[in-house]
């Protein structure tokens, strides 16, 4: 239980050991650990950022979808309107056409009737004369009864 020169030796060993450990182990390990800590923090921050971005993208997609839906609804409404318009148009055209055809047919009928009437009219005089001759048994001068014949003809 004495203090000897060993004391000085131990102090020297201690000093050298501290200096050695500092350079060889303490600082490299602390540096590595701090670098790792920083990288983990960065990674977590990046993940957070990614999540945020994902949220934003989701929101954007939803917005885009909504817009597309509205647009498509608009387009469909327009198409329906246009379709009904076309139908109306077609209806109108068809009615018009039908009217025209009817009119033409009526005109033709009218014409035919007129023509038939004219034909009948032209023949009515001779028919009446012939009929009367047969009834009376004598020749009748058509000219003498022209007025009566014309009256008859006009009644047709």
């Amino acid at each position: 239980m004495n203090i000897t020169a060993t004391l000085i030796g131990q102090m020297i060993v201690f000093t050298v050991l501290v200096w050695f450990i500092k350079g060889v182990m303490w600082e490299p390990i602390l540096t590595a650990m701090q670098a790792r800590q920083k990288r983990i923090a960065d990674g977590l921050a990046a993940a957070e950022q990614g999540l945020q971005n994902e949220e934003l993208a989701k929101q954007a997609a939803i917005d885009e979808l909504k817009k597309a839906k509205t647009e498509s609804a608009e387009i469909i409404a327009q198409a329906q309107k246009r379709a009904s318009e076309i139908v109306e148009e077609a209806k109108g055209t068809a009615t018009e056409e039908a009217g025209r055809v009817t009119t033409a047919a009526q005109a033709e009928i009218e014409q035919e009737v007129t023509r038939a009437r004219e034909g009948l009219r032209s023949q009515v005089a001779s028919l009446a004369v012939t009929g009367a001759e047969k009834i009376l048994g004598k020749e009748i001068d058509a000219k003498a009864h022209a007025k009566a014949l014309d009256e008859l003809a006009s009644q047709i």
Binding site: T4, A5, T6, Q10
Partner: peptide, 15 residues
Amino acid sequence: PESITDFSVIHVDVL
């Protein structure tokens, strides 16, 4: 070691 502090002695085993 002669006295309580004797710097002429070195303990080889300790070192």
